[in-house]
């Protein structure tokens, strides 16, 4: 009883401390696009407990509600430390990617990304004139030895214990050294005043989803840690019609794709010769690729139920 009260006071203080518990009312997911919703709803959750303790939180309009612990606003330190016991990892199966860029669009909707930039970018690669071209989706690699966080003069971008590399746009001074330092050109900049949609603007800011965005600051793919915490796949992985993108926890040695296939990470990487892009740079990416081998795939099920109506193939 007294514990409950202490928790309540603590959480209320957190709310008073500046973070608004709009998330508690489900506001954080207002930006989730319909297709991604459909896909993530049809996809099973990331392995791991998706239910947890409920905590009281104060909403923006002054009501006291019970919310899932993971949805409650967190103190700044917790945001910088990450989700305890997790080691998020992504595997991208180049053999199945057909370059439809649904991942890019789903990510764009999820994070309300303006049209001039992409957090996950699909490149058409050709390693040599003799080999077939293939598609190469490139999110942030969330390197274990990140060149970007090392050069940040103010610790605005940081590496968390759960493996993700995030940016605090309330701290970023916009020197863009991290952009120059990233060998994979992942990072993008708010060159002009951002025009976030209203539902995004009402969200409390957290480096875990990067919105509302701010002028003169850097942003990039964040591995959707707020989704992962609730047992859901990142927008790109959930939306992929070809189930190319696997996401999961390295500590559990399991990754899941949009079809709901959960496989053992170590086996997948060993059996299919998984590799990291430009691992010779020593950045130790947390994103693995499966080589583009036998790229003879059946066309995906592009029914509206899975993808929504707006999927268009560019190639």
């Amino acid at each position: 009883m007294s514990n409950d009260r202490r928790d309540f006071i603590k959480n209320s203080l957190i709310v008073l401390g500046g973070a608004v518990a709009a998330k508690a009312t489900g506001g954080a997911f207002a930006a989730v696009p319909a297709p991604a919703d459909a896909a993530s709803a049809s996809a099973p959750p990331v392995p791991g407990p998706s239910s947890g303790p409920m905590v009281p939180a104060l909403t923006a309009d002054g009501r006291l509600v019970q919310v899932h612990a993971s949805a409650a606003p967190k103190p700044a330190l917790a945001v910088r430390q990450g989700i305890p016991g997790r080691k998020w990892v992504m595997v991208i199966d180049l053999a199945s990617c057909d370059g439809c860029r649904t991942c890019t669009r789903a990510c764009g909707k999820m994070h309300a990304i303006p049209g001039d930039r992409e957090w996950i970018r699909v490149f058409k690669m050709q390693d040599s004139p003799e080999t077939a071209p293939y598609f190469f989706p490139r999110p942030c690699f969330h390197c274990d030895n990140p060149p970007c966080t090392r050069v940040c003069p103010v610790d605005a971008t940081f590496k968390r214990q759960d493996g993700t590399v995030l940016i605090d746009n309330e701290r970023c001074i916009g020197c863009r050294f991290c952009m120059a330092a990233c060998p994979y050109s992942v990072r993008v900049f708010n060159w002009s005043r951002p025009h976030d949609p209203p539902e995004v603007l009402t969200e409390p800011y957290s480096p875990e989803h990067g919105t509302p965005r701010r002028i003169g600051t850097v942003e990039k793919c964040d591995f959707c840690p707020d989704m992962a915490e609730q047992g859901m796949l990142p927008a790109c992985a959930a939306a992929c019609p070809m189930a190319v993108i696997y996401f999961g926890d390295q500590n559990e040695d399991a990754v899941t794709n949009s079809k709901g296939e959960t496989v053992r990470l170590s086996t997948l990487l060993t059996d299919r010769a998984g590799y990291q892009y430009m691992e010779e740079l020593g950045t130790k990416p947390r994103v693995y690729y499966l080589p583009p081998k036998n790229r003879m795939y059946a066309p995906p099920d592009r029914t509206a139920a899975v993808l929504g109506h707006d999927v268009m193939r560019r190639r």
Binding site: R150, V151, C152, P153, V154, D155, A156, R171, C172, I173, G174, C175, R176, F177, F189, N190, I215, G216, T217, V218
Partner: peptide, 19 residues
Amino acid sequence: DMGRPDRLQHVILYGRLNS
């Protein structure tokens, strides 16, 4: 060149010698 010259003080408040 800075995107946020208004946050110049961050270099002193949060300065990291790694950079």
